[in-house]
Design a protein around this nucleic acid. Structure first.
Lengths: 205, 205
DNA sequence: TATAATAATGAACAACCTGTCGTTCATTAT
DNA sequence: ATAATGAACGACAGGTTGTTCATTATTATA
């Protein structure tokens, strides 16, 4: 019985394919990349690529799914603690630790994340990431953090606002070389989301 | 001497090319669209397309540039008034009118904007739009709205936060059928940016 | 309205990319 | 040692790209 996941040839091939993808996204946009580009860079036969992936989109989706799964795990493991702490403490104190964990994970996977979230990356991933953020943090019906009746604006716009803003900051952090620590980034995001960006800009109070 | 901009044949051809582009982005992603797709849909010869544009990217860029130019005009015409009013009034009152104008323009060009900002659209346009937003609203050195010394967070992250958040809300508005009026959308964005998204969510105070 | 100007067409082209074959060869189990 | 497995390879047909050119249709203008 052979295991597709332990065959060294497969592991080597898949790794070089994914490394080539990240390298190429830095050089040209994802849409401009051809399967031939990838296989040439990865030094494998083009037919071998099709033995593992349907096309470049399948490759991209599988890379993205791995990332989403990991982030989902981080969120699910720490969300119960957040929910109970939320009763007594301020939103700052409760959401801060989870934000730090996410930034630490992004830091670890920064090569791929920078490529896929960058200006030459994959737009559909951002859409999926926004949906994911909203569902994991605020979508759990029983213990939802946000109640519809408390909203001052329609929920869908609040969701878009927060998710897009956070992804935007993550993009900037990755793109400018990750000079701030995960802790510092979590503080920056908290400041803007809790007090509002205009307050953080010194335009208020 | 004949004018390329008034020849009815050219106007007709260009219009049908751009209409075809918007239609096709609704159906498949921009990267999946071929020049052949566009010319078939526009009912013109493929050679004619190359007489007007270098390739599909050239077409997209030229469409985007027109939009950016118009938005730039709106911003430049109204910015002086905003600056003077800003000394005495609150940020709400001063930035509100300009936001309404922008939403009215987006409403007018909603077909193209929905396509290009949507999940199948063009990622590089979003990047350009963020840069544009920041430069027009906060980048004018002499009378900058935001002073570096007042910031509670690094300026680059503040810029990314606000720009991404606003574009995210615009995307949601376009994607969900533009049910709210431009005035209502301006109010929603102001509420979240001035009091903060957490306050707007009923999570604070 | 007649005419000169020129935009659009259809066809052909080489070059390239795609997805899918059957074949070869290294690895592994017996 | 050897047979079975399946990963990697080379080659194929079909489609797209960007270009060119002679021909046709449409437009602006005198």
């Amino acid at each position: 019985m052979r295991d597709r996941n332990t065959d060294l040839r497969i592991i080597r091939t898949k790794e070089s394919i994914r490394d080539a993808l990240v390298e190429l996204i830095d050089e040209k946009s994802f849409e401009a990349i051809t399967v031939k580009d990838i296989t040439t860079r990865a030094k494998i036969n083009r037919g071998t690529f099709y033995a593992h992936y349907q096309d470049k989109f399948d490759l991209m989706t599988k890379c993205e799914d791995e990332i989403m799964l990991e982030m989902s795990k981080i969120a699910k493991q720490n969300f119960p603690g957040v929910l109970t702490a939320f009763e007594t403490n301020s939103p700052t104190a409760t959401l801060f630790p989870i934000a730090v964990l996410i930034f630490e994970y992004l830091n670890e996977k920064s090569g791929f994340m920078k490529a896929v979230l960058g200006p030459k990356g994959d737009l559909s991933f951002q859409t999926r990431l926004k949906d994911f953020m909203w569902k994991t943090l605020f979508g759990n019906d029983p213990g939802a953090l946000i109640k519809e009746q408390n909203l001052l604006v329609p929920g869908q716009y609040l969701a878009s606002y927060i998710a897009s803003a956070h992804i935007g900051v993550i993009q900037k952090w990755l793109d400018s070389g990750r000079k701030e620590s995960p802790q510092e980034m979590a503080r920056i995001l908290s400041t803007m989301s809790i007090n509002g960006p205009f307050f953080a800009a010194g335009l208020k109070k």
